[in-house]
């Protein structure tokens, strides 16, 4: 063995793994790229198949049959646990709520403690988020999505980058609105089918309905969404991917006043 080979061998033993935090940040960045790509794809003009269909009487009838079958099959799958709640209704209902509080726990199997992030949305489309010692403000009503962040102890401006910002951008998507649809759009093509989960017939299942999106080839990757049967509002969302998980808990009971969402009011406390 040449001397350089000994040294070459010892070079291969160098190994510094990336941290879970960096993995999470890059995964969020990849999810955002997926959302962008999907939105771009849906915005791209499609070949004019519709015109081809309506020109021909036979294809017109065939298209009508396909639409009817799709609707029947869709109702069968989304309502398989005897529920009349369709996931589209949950998406629609969530978009119509004026305010909410979202608590997110992000963790992985190797670390004992999960990271906690809290997000509040106001009636005027203002958002405040807490991540560790950082507070983030964003007003997305104007569509500019400018993030302003401060340290909660020193009240000095800090960089807004982090998991909270990434999650906000994930739920906001490019549509500039809080929507579960943005989350579904970010899933890989193999995990986009939302089905309702058959649950045991008990008091809890009579009040809640569970939806899941499971990866076709990697079943450990899944998204579960719990929604209230009557109001159709989501109450919990669990996202599992490899050894990482995120838990989203929705709360609609507390309305915060406008000063809570005002970054200027926050800085005034510091200047006082």
């Amino acid at each position: 063995m040449r001397p350089a080979d000994n040294i070459r061998k010892s070079f291969t033993e160098l190994h510094v793994p990336t941290s879970a935090r960096l993995d999470e940040q890059i995964n969020v960045e990849i999810s955002m790229a997926l959302v962008k790509a999907r939105n771009k794809k849906s915005a791209d003009p499609l070949p004019n198949i519709w015109r081809m269909i309506v020109k021909n009487r036979t294809t017109k009838l065939a298209a009508a049959a396909v639409i009817i079958i799709t609707v029947v099959v869709g109702i069968h799958y989304l309502g398989s646990s005897g529920t009349s709640v369709a996931f589209a209704e949950v998406i629609q209902r969530f978009e119509s709520v004026p305010f909410f509080n979202l608590t997110i726990y992000v963790g992985n199997d190797t670390t004992a403690e999960a990271q906690k992030i809290e997000i509040w949305k106001s009636e005027k489309s203002q958002v405040r988020a807490h991540e560790a010692n950082k507070v983030i403000f964003i007003d997305f009503a104007d569509g500019n999505n400018v993030f302003v962040a401060f340290d909660r102890s020193t009240m000095q401006p800090v960089n807004a980058d982090g998991i909270a910002k990434a999650v906000l951008m994930w739920i906001l998507g490019t549509g500039k609105r809080f929507s579960l649809e943005n989350i579904i759009n970010s899933l890989p093509a193999e995990a986009k089918d939302i089905t309702s989960v058959k649950t045991a017939d008990n008091a809890a299942s009579r009040e809640t309905v569970v939806f899941e999106a499971r990866h076709r080839t990697r079943p450990e990757q899944l998204l579960l969404i719990w929604a209230l049967r009557e109001s159709k509002l989501p109450v919990r969302m669990h996202f599992n991917s490899h050894s990482k998980y995120s838990d989203f808990l929705f709360d609609y009971s507390q309305k915060k006043d406008s000063a809570f969402f005002d970054s200027n009011a926050f800085t005034k406390q510091r200047d006082r």
């Binding site: 793994p17 990336t18 993995d23 890059i26 995964n27 990849i30 790229a33 997926l34 790509a37």
Partner: peptide, 13 residues
């Protein structure tokens, strides 16, 4: 963009 995850996992360390 579906390949980004694989590339990251393959070369990150």
């Amino acid at each position: 963009v579906d390949v980004l995850q694989r590339i990251y996992v393959k070369y990150k360390d």
